[in-house]
């Protein structure tokens, strides 16, 4: 049953997923080309100096792609469910409703993780060609909050879409934006803040249950 549900989710998500993967690939290609360009025109030591001593953000093209991926995947996955109340069909399936919603969201989560692992690995390889491991770690550390933004944005967008009442959706929107803004503004997060971001981000996945409950009860 779980795999059948995932099959349905995959049918909805696949093109958006491939689209976001392609977009990530383009951004990474751009970063790779840019790196080669900088090394050529600044000379390697000039470029290293800029990066190591001045913190030159040579990989910022990737910053908003995880966010966009999270939002786009949530939209393509959940807006068809809300269109004409199709979610009723889903919730009528002989599976416990909360479990069903969590299974749906787990699938988007897994796809995003897959995408983000690919982004991380590719950025790692690209940066590792030109720069030493310390810089690679610095880059991946900077990338990490952006990836968490992507996951959290996915969970919260899903909760916003599934919420049947417009007024409640509008309440959730500014808090979502505020929350995500905090991730973006966290520079050099301390380990405990990183752990908090991971946990709080993952916990937002449960908000879909509250929205789903409103849908289920027909609360207006």
């Amino acid at each position: 049953m779980y795999s059948a549900l995932l099959y349905k989710e995959w049918l909805k998500i696949r093109w958006a997923f491939f689209g976001m993967a392609l977009l990530s690939l383009l951004a990474l290609t751009y970063i790779a080309l840019n790196l080669a360009y900088y090394v050529e025109f600044m000379t390697a030591k000039g470029f290293w100096g800029n990066v190591i001593l001045l913190g030159f953000p040579f990989f910022s093209e990737i910053e908003y792609i995880p966010l966009l991926s999270g939002i786009v995947i949530a939209i393509v996955q959940f807006s068809p469910e809300m269109n004409l109340s199709r979610l009723k069909l889903t919730l009528h399936l002989p599976v416990e409703e909360n479990k069903l919603l969590m299974q749906m969201i787990s699938f988007g989560f897994m796809l995003l993780i897959l995408l983000f692992v690919l982004i991380t690995l590719m950025l790692w390889i690209i940066v590792g060609i030109y720069l030493p491991v310390e810089v690679v770690i610095f880059v991946l550390n900077s990338l990490f909050p952006w990836l968490m933004v992507g996951l959290t944005a996915y969970f919260l967008t899903a909760a916003i879409i599934i919420e049947p009442v417009w007024a409640r959706r509008l309440i959730l929107v500014p808090f979502t934006l505020g929350f995500l803004d905090l991730f973006f503004n966290a520079v050099n997060p301390h380990a405990q803040l990183t752990v908090f971001f991971i946990f709080s981000g993952l916990l937002t996945s449960t908000l879909i249950l509250f929205s789903g409950y409103h849908f289920k009860r027909g609360i207006k």
Binding site: M1, S3, A4, Y7, K8, L11, K12, P80, L84, S85, R86, K88, L89, H92, L93, P94, V95
Partner: peptide, 26 residues
């Protein structure tokens, strides 16, 4: 319980084959 929603709503992003395959698992 078999449930026909007002307006014969179904998953319109699926094909005849896909939707049968989907529901059969449940």
């Amino acid at each position: 319980v078999g449930f026909l929603i007002e307006g014969h709503i179904q998953y319109s992003f699926m094909s005849i084959k896909q939707i049968e395959k989907f529901y059969s698992a449940f």
